[in-house]
Amino acid sequence: MSVLIIIPAYNEEKNLKRVIPRLQQVCPQFDYVVVNDGSMDGTEDVCRQNGYPCISLPTNQGIAGAVRTGMKYASQKGYDMALQFDADGQHLPEYIPDMVDCMEREHCDVVIGSRYIGEKRPFSIRTVGAKLISAAIWLTTGKHLSDPTSGMRLYDKRVVEQFIRDENSAPEPDTLSYLFRLGADIREVKVEMADRVEGCSYLTPGNASKYMIQMLMSICVFQWFRDRKGML
């Protein structure tokens, strides 16, 4: 089964030079593509000079648009699975084969790389947010996810097509809860994550609270109105 690793990158020229060689070295069996999300720095030049396969968006789309672009490409090229992988070095390629194995073995629809499966979450504002989202998903769908905010997720073909069809399916926790409602099988696999070395996180306090409100509203309120016919 073929896997495409989608690496959305916004102003990540420094990180890419570290992350891609490591990915090539650890997982040479998988194809990958960098989706340059209208970066202002030399992200595109870094890809061209080093021969990294790269899709360059003419304007900034945000993470959801960048991942969707990668998925459209994966669908056109006929890949069986698509993996979302951060360009900032937080995600470790060592765990990709585990996730792919899990999907091939269990024939599930989504595999999440979870930091917290089988262990207690360390206490921080970030984990409190993740816990709230977990609770919202549990309350509305009855399913338990230990790490719904993890950005390292593997999607099968069916879910990739769902993302392309439905503009409201962004690679975020609310889509996981929507997929649960559509009857998708979502599994978690234990992974470790590294700390960010270069650049700065998108999750500033202002953005984080906006994100939380959006996710909780979407999971608890909007999910009830969303059309489930013809999806997945």
Binding site: V35, I55, L57, P58, T59, G65, T69, K72
Partner: peptide, 9 residues
């Protein structure tokens, strides 16, 4: 925007 990027690729 997404389709332009994919066609270019």
């Amino acid at each position: 925007v997404q389709n332009i990027a994919i066609y270019r690729k």
